[in-house]
Design a protein around this nucleic acid. Sequence first.
DNA 1: ATTCTACTCCCCAGAAACTGCGAGGCCGGG
DNA 2: CCCGGCCTCGCAGTTTCTGGGGAGTAGAAT
Lengths: 242, 242
Amino acid sequence: MGFLGNAPRLDGLIERLESANGLDDLQILIEELRDQYGVDHIIYHWVNSSGEQYGCGTYDLEWVNRYVEKGYLRIDPVIQGCYQRFHPVNWKRLDWSSKSARALMKDAIEHGIGNQGFSIPIRGPNGQFALFSLSHNCSDAEWEEFTETNRRDLILVAHYFNQKALEFEPGRTPEPAQQLSPREIEAMTLLAIGYSRAQAADTLSISEHTLRVYVESARFKLGAMNTTHAVARALSRGLIVV
Amino acid sequence: MGFLGNAPRLDGLIERLESANGLDDLQILIEELRDQYGVDHIIYHWVNSSGEQYGCGTYDLEWVNRYVEKGYLRIDPVIQGCYQRFHPVNWKRLDWSSKSARALMKDAIEHGIGNQGFSIPIRGPNGQFALFSLSHNCSDAEWEEFTETNRRDLILVAHYFNQKALEFEPGRTPEPAQQLSPREIEAMTLLAIGYSRAQAADTLSISEHTLRVYVESARFKLGAMNTTHAVARALSRGLIVV
DNA sequence: ATTCTACTCCCCAGAAACTGCGAGGCCGGG
DNA sequence: CCCGGCCTCGCAGTTTCTGGGGAGTAGAAT
């Protein structure tokens, strides 16, 4: 495996990131970045709701396909952990206690991902969630020092990467991010925290019929099939908070 | 009004941010930061839909109270605009066309907020949304140059600010995050993407009754009142990804 | 001035979900 | 070996949700 290189000059890189003109440019930049940092892999991974997710990075296609096919997305502690965190995290600090997680790690190491990793969670509008991760093969101490040294730069790079990816996003939700009205938000929030329609209506001091109108209206705006679906969408788009 | 100062040394500041030990420290740091940058105001503002929101910064209390009382939160183009954006934004670029928005701007200028502003949206887990904003009184050109020059540093500062604010947040869920079984996850996921129980059962090639057992089991594990509640909890805990 | 959006209320019938009961097989850990 | 967790299936009765009507107010936007 390669050596951890010196920290590259960020200014030029970010400028080139800002002037990137398509997903291909991002792929080129990410490879360059990997070489400059001297790590084994860097990946930017858009973890999207609708299944169609975009990613670019230096993993081989084989591993990516394997990852998707095996449904690793659902058990990967990196995903699970970063989803609950704000700050970047060293993979070693995550919870690898479950059997499936350890199987995943073993499989990953066998596919040359490396035994160390560092992931930066990034969140955008409408509940967008992405990860910017570096992986490498080295000792714990080396990795700890590397991530400590480059943490700030990496946060910035991850940020700019996501900004670009958002610009190029293919599936810019055709619906222009329908906003919910205040009452609709209240209604959906109450349902999301477990109230029945009757309870929610009571809490808002309105008739259950009225509450139903809000829920239906929200369901329509969100393009949802039923109440549960609507609450799920409202949550993933960050329209309501539980 | 003051002068736009030179960019401060970030390293020391971020280190002090990282070792901040309470909300008071953040208040001290934000005032210092304002003086170093030579802008009129800097505020960090946690925008929570549930009403209880934390903020620190250099606005006078009078303006903050006025802002809340007048319900400006709901009409402020800064909030609205940043909520839909990922990248920091100059207030001049926002949509001030509505009457209420212009009234807000007029009111703000009269209260000494300044005619220029720059806001960085920040998002955390569970739909957390915060703003880190600077405001000042100067010409468009000056402000444009200032924000261009300091954009990257400010993004980083905003990031670390939010990290600290999250640490100090009172309402951290202590619950040990019950895991769901694979089948339960599948069932909940299907419900979350809008399938009815019958459809979901069909998709998994099991009877509807069986599916129901999974949902009930998941509901129990999550301490949820009903299916909608369970799906909402599973989503916010990152147990399922829609 | 008119249109539009948000908010409020009402009825009804059919579809779907919830509650509570019970049952058997499979697998891994103590 | 037994217990517990997971996966699978069934019935019956009650409650809730859904989707189709209609109708009026107030405030903001054009």
